[in-house]
């Protein structure tokens, strides 16, 4: 079970509202490579991971992704608090504002609502771990793209932290994949699915 701790994983203090930035950073909240999908992917994969150590990596990365979900929510919140109607119009934020005001809704940058279609639980350790390696890289690219467009140091600093964590997760999943393969037939990793064929 989970409990809540009243703190962010990394500090966020954004002084100036900027709905133009919130418009695309929201994608890391509920977008195709965002933190909600990341957490749900690893959380959902863990029960069909037959190696306890690798299930632990999935569990613990899923938990850290919830910290990151909270961080992205905080960034979007601080970018949209105290914004004026003129700032909303100037940023082209009207389409979001009319549906969600200054609330934080899990959606893609395009406005498409959060979709579990952007993640997979294959129930095969090699397939799932490769999915996760790709997911971390896609999230890293999204943060790189955000950094190309963000011009506020208060935003850039926590985004850099989040980007770095994608790389660390990629590294841990790579080690998880190696652990899985070390437990399989070295001449044919695909001879069986250890999540299904070993009872």
């Amino acid at each position: 079970m989970w409990t809540y701790e009243r703190r962010l994983e990394y500090p966020i203090n954004i002084k100036n509202p900027n709905p133009a930035l919130a418009k695309f950073i929201i994608s890391q909240y509920g977008g195709p490579d965002g933190e909600l999908g990341a957490s749900l992917r690893y959380m959902s994969q863990r029960t069909s991971m037959p190696y306890r150590q690798v299930a632990g990596i999935l569990n613990d990365v899923a938990t850290e992704e919830l910290n990151h979900l909270e961080m992205v929510q905080t960034i979007v919140h601080q970018l949209t608090r105290n914004m004026t109607i003129d700032q909303i119009k100037e940023a082209g934020f009207e389409t979001y504002f009319v549906d969600h005001t200054a609330g934080v809704y899990p959606q893609f940058a395009s406005g498409y609502p959060y979709s579990a279609a952007s993640l997979q639980v294959k129930g095969d350790p090699i397939a799932d771990m490769n999915e996760n390696l790709a997911a971390e890289q896609k999230a890293r690219v999204t943060y790189d793209n955000i950094l190309r467009m963000a011009d506020d140091p208060d935003v850039i600093d926590p985004i850099r932290f989040l980007r770095e964590r994608e790389i660390v997760h990629y590294q841990r999943f790579g080690e998880g994949l190696r652990y899985i393969q070390d437990n399989l037939n070295k001449k044919n990793f695909y001879a069986i699915n250890p999540a299904f064929d070993i009872r």
Binding site: R46, R52, Q53, I57
Partner: peptide
């Protein structure tokens, strides 16, 4: 020891 004991599921 964190990852050694059985997981709750």
């Amino acid at each position: 020891t964190w990852t050694q004991a059985p997981w709750p599921w």
